[in-house]
Design a protein around this nucleic acid. Sequence first.
DNA 1: TTGAAAGCGCTACCAG
DNA 2: CTGGTAGCGCTTTCAA
Lengths: 350, 350
Amino acid sequence: MEDQKLELVKKPTVNDIARVAGVSLATVDRVLNRRPGVRAVTVQKVQNAIDELGYIRDTAAANLARNRVYNFLFVLPDTDNEFVEALSTQIIEQSRDQFIERTRMTIKKVPPFDPQGIVEFLDAINSRDVDGVAVFGPETPSVRDAVKRVRDKGIPVVALVSDLPSSDRDHFVGVDNVSAGRTAAQLMGRFAHRGGKVLVLTGSRLARDHLERRQGFDLVVAEEFPHLEVVASVEGRDDPELIYNMMPEIFETYPDLVGIYSSAAGNAGLVQFLSESKVVKDLVIIAHELTPLSREALSRGTFDALISQDTGHIVRSAVRLLRATSDTVPFNKAQERIRIDIYLKENLPL
Amino acid sequence: MEDQKLELVKKPTVNDIARVAGVSLATVDRVLNRRPGVRAVTVQKVQNAIDELGYIRDTAAANLARNRVYNFLFVLPDTDNEFVEALSTQIIEQSRDQFIERTRMTIKKVPPFDPQGIVEFLDAINSRDVDGVAVFGPETPSVRDAVKRVRDKGIPVVALVSDLPSSDRDHFVGVDNVSAGRTAAQLMGRFAHRGGKVLVLTGSRLARDHLERRQGFDLVVAEEFPHLEVVASVEGRDDPELIYNMMPEIFETYPDLVGIYSSAAGNAGLVQFLSESKVVKDLVIIAHELTPLSREALSRGTFDALISQDTGHIVRSAVRLLRATSDTVPFNKAQERIRIDIYLKENLPL
DNA sequence: TTGAAAGCGCTACCAG
DNA sequence: CTGGTAGCGCTTTCAA
């Protein structure tokens, strides 16, 4: 009884292991860190003690002792789109807090929609000065292979926002984009009372996240909302100006549009067109990502709902995952799940 | 240049302060921890060195040295409602992780809707074995005063889920319930295509969160949805059985109901009634909190949307806030903001 | 193959 | 009022 209480209150340390196993601290450490130069029998003795005592390593003390510093790299597309900007801002803002926790974050911007740029950069990474990489990029064969090569150097990699499943990345930090598209469709179907055509504004064929959203959107509209018809999607390349210029023709082709699902970036062009147009109104518009612009559009009623993902959460999660992978320690799965946020004008954060 | 780089890479320690200030480690520690017995001039010297170096304390090392353990208490209503159960589960599950981080969590269940029970418990708390308290309870004058007394003992207190603003609690961990009600109303207004009466099912007049939701809901319906009329709300006391039994009479009184906003707990009674009733259908139902029951109801189409708050996040946030308050260190405001989650059947987490 | 001892950044105790 | 020193849990030389 007394014993049990003590074990609950005080957790075993390396000293306890050493005592129980009858070896020195140094040997315990060697076993703990899988370092060579210990006889199999000795390893076994120590391992037994560890199991028996239910030892859990104190990571904070370990990091203190080895004066460890984590160097993480964030590879982002070099566009001026608001979502990427929000991500960058988060990384920079969190740098201060993370610095205290012994982790340094660096942002590397590579040309957007350009697999080769990412590949070259990834290949130049050295395991001596980088402890982990977070990549937000397109899932092309070359990128996939480059990611594999990074991992082969022993450097953990997480995919950010847009998954790279075929690359064998350690983790994906972002939302299920098929579900995000489905969610948008459900809102569109419920909000659009009169029937008609719906347009999907997408970004690039190379971006896996955009494709998945479109796919999810189509499925739900087809299944549940026969009063709506999704027309051929338009590729806006996340470019506000391009989008702005395309809009008149779109409305000429589909004068009876009842809704737009803006599934990528470049919303500024859409908002500008809508604010200038006198004919277009009563459209249900669902867009992605909470940014200053989209927030404003939602508040004014230009947008009806936003599908979003929390950039602060994404960055924190990437760091925690990279750290856990680097230290080969477990992580809390529920905490790392990025939610598909729905914003209406009434639940906007302060 | 070289210097600057070094400062960015290596942060100053107590040893640096001691050296620069020309005093011993012990004195630096005294100043750092505001302990008495140091001459004003000496304090000043040390303070100057601290400012000059831009010193930031390494909390992990400090906690290691003092072998600090945080003892936090969670005071929850002793009901079997699913939301409180989810909170308890989170606390228990997170206990394991938190244990590693030197913090112990204890749950204390007090009779629900009974301010006196909470008061007595709070008054018995001792600052020698408790380092922080998280309270989920009604905002009555007696509770408010009891919370104040706890804080007077130097113990940090956070309000959980339902705010206790008048009590001067250190922080509130939960959503803005007026906005939550507004959000529910917006969804109700958009989803309910035909006009008619809407019922609000509430919990208790004593619960601030329930009152606020109702208030927000009424405002938005009145402002934006003239086709809907909110009828006098019904108090279900979070009791499934009571709610189940009340439903027939409600539908007799309002045969033309088009929607129900279930703003509190006890959804099991509502779901059961709906599944048994042959007459009631095509109702828009918005409920609160993602639980196994509500999740199932949403998937089946019995519920149309859920307004929720992440219990995992709430518990983690409470712990971080209690710790930060206890150590008087800053915290990340954005990270601690609990979001008003909207769930449709398409964005349900795995 | 193993152990002794110093040290990471910080706190606490005991002397002076 | 101030300083020296041991020690928290862990890692890392350096010797043996």
